[in-house]
Design a protein around this nucleic acid. Structure first.
Lengths: 358, 358
DNA sequence: GGTATGACCGTGAACGTTCACGGCATCTCC
DNA sequence: GGAGATGCCGTGAACGTTCACGGTCATACC
């Protein structure tokens, strides 16, 4: 039998709790380590390692014996201890999916996955829809070398939550070191859309803005798209904006309101495709013929736009260019061993995607 | 100056390479550790820890000095070392997304994220569309306690790749310990669909099968849905099956072929909603009125089915029940400290979702 | 002046694994 | 029968953190 410790109880986390101690918490199960397995199998640590990683230099029978011991004890190697010692080149990126309810983000995810695999990157994802951004960042900050995503929080909060890991921010300018960005020239997109609708004969153009579009503030504030719209549309279309929830249904309701308020409206630019599709559907219900009576133009270029009838004309954001620009930055970061670099910025230009609704 | 090592060069991974050594590989950059920072700031490890984790017991000026040193050296704490010592309860699950081109899987991802967050789980995701399954599994096996996904590989391959981490397989039976499953009663779904179409007056029912539906084999083999369809449909509909690529376009082509081959066909059951939507679109092009001339029924219950015109009638798989069953299993696994348990199996029953296309 | 208090900082140990060795048999070859 | 090769196994060290202490001052208090 063993005596007590020579000096006042310097017990560690995993140590066996003294009787009567830890009365309310469930005693934390002591982890089964490689040493336990080694002891059970009557061999050394290293032999266990050889068995579980089948590395050779081990007798087949011994191996089986070790493997059985693993099974019996329920041994599971610690990923942390393992990674601590091997230090492999991960090149893993974390992608924060802003929402799974808007196909825009999942389509980007798909494109990113493809392109990343081609360039030798691993991708892990987390959602910021349910989990708040700092949480998601914190959770993944241990696993990845760079973050990519449509971020919401302000720069300070991001810097704090990212744990020193560089960020590539999508559709948002970056200013400080360690944060980089791929922007979309929204103004140009809005300009093209308005011009396109005009050349198709539109006179009075309305707009559907989103009440919440990845903005941190809980109250509505006009999106940049609305800003550019109001700046550029002018003439008799001034002020024809309605705000709706960022979804198909929200787009539908906003469209109905727009039609009711401005009976002579002959074209609509929607905040995004999801809302535009809602508008197209609402037009059926309202007996409005698209594009003859009202032209509808979306924003994003979702493939989903092909599923509706009439198919959706839209300002397409080149997702391929978006993700490959982001990956360019990530590669540059990797080349610099993920140090803190001055902001890199890329911009992609959207373009009109002509389909049937305008 | 220091002398050489007392015994023949026992260099480690991170040591400075001797000149002439490692001639072709880029020298692996030595990691900046907490000790480097401590030295640079003229303090001890522990003080650095206190600074970066703001733990108190530290002078504000010292803290700033340490933080500056971190910044300057580009110090990034090792997640592995950190986790190794704290041993926190992670409860992280890995979700393998089968495809980002089929909204079915991304909708499940969204639901899973929501439900998992509610139950205190972290979720990391990887795609098996670009990366092969064993790779994805291997990559995440270090980060999570349980895997969930629509798996393709056979049980042996999965057992090998999962690194001893328990699996929850979606829509697939499990047989061996450590692998669990949530199945969908496909037969019941097909039965309901056929019966529903019949009560709506359908006589000659065709089916569109998928040429590839998460099956490992590269050649076509009939899906279970087709099997049940052929078993249950009988009568004058026997043999009316066409195979197409698993996409909207594939569904459209298959529909056209079906119509051409069986001119008196009055209803179609599609492998999934994606293909069914393709069929609905094709019907427009072919001048076929849905549901008057041909009724179309999908399978999955995507919200996307509401975007098409007419909206898609479908056999809906309750994704909420699916993921919450999976989470039940995950919770049970967590309660057992993620040991190897005998297979747990749940089943969810699909149900008809009446919309306009049938 | 002695003692308690508090603010701040440093040191050994531990987390669980793999790496680089060294060692001991046994076998092979001339 | 010695030298080398080969198969198999074990031991110290290292990975980079945090924890539990133990210090050292300066200040406060009686």
């Amino acid at each position: 039998m063993t005596c007590g410790p020579p000096f006042p109880s310097r017990r560690r986390l995993g140590a066996r709790p003294m009787p009567g101690e830890r009365p309310y918490h469930q005693a934390m199960a002591k982890r089964v380590t490689i040493n336990d397995v080694a002891q059970a199998a009557g061999v050394s640590r290293q032999t266990v390692t050889r068995a579980i990683n089948d590395m050779g230099e081990i007798n087949e029978q011994t191996k089986q014996r070790v493997l059985e011991a693993c099974q019996k004890l329920g041994y599971r190697p610690s990923r942390f201890a393992r990674n601590l010692v091997v230090r492999k080149k991960t090149r893993a990126m974390g992608y924060l999916v802003a929402s799974f309810r808007n196909p825009y983000f999942t389509e980007i995810a798909g494109d990113l996955l493809n392109a990343a695999a081609e360039r030798g990157w691993h991708v892990v994802m987390a959602s910021t829809e349910t989990e708040d951004e700092p949480n998601a960042l914190d959770m993944l900050s241990g696993q990845v070398d760079v973050f990519i995503g449509h971020f919401v929080q302000n720069d300070d909060a991001l810097a704090r939550a990212s744990g020193g890991i560089p960020l590539v921010m999508l559709e948002r300018p970056s200013s400080r070191p360690g944060m980089h960005s791929v922007e979309v020239d929204i103004r140009e997109g809005v300009r093209e859309a308005i011009q396109a609708l005009r050349t198709k004969g539109a006179r009075r153009i309305g707009m559907i803005d989103s009440s919440y579009s990845l903005r941190a503030s809980p109250t509505y504030e006009p999106s940049p798209r609305r800003g550019y719209f109001e700046e550029l549309v002018g003439g008799e279309s001034t002020g024809m904006v309605v705000v709706g929830e960022e979804s198909m249904a929200g787009g539908g309701r906003a469209f109905a309101e727009l039609v009711a308020t401005y009976p002579d409206m002959d074209a609509v630019l929607a905040f995004n495709d999801l809302m535009a599709i809602g508008a197209v559907q609402a037009s059926h219900a309202l007996g409005i013929e698209v594009p003859r009576q009202v032209k509808i133009c979306g924003f994003d270029g979702l493939t989903l736009g092909e599923a509706v009838h009439p198919t959706l004309t839209t300002v397409s954001i080149d997702r391929h260019a978006l993700v490959s620009s982001a990956l360019d930055i990530a590669d540059a970061l990797a080349a610099a061993d993920f140090g803190v670099l001055p902001p890199m910025r890329r911009t992609v230009r959207p373009h009109m995607l002509w389909r049937e609704s305008a």
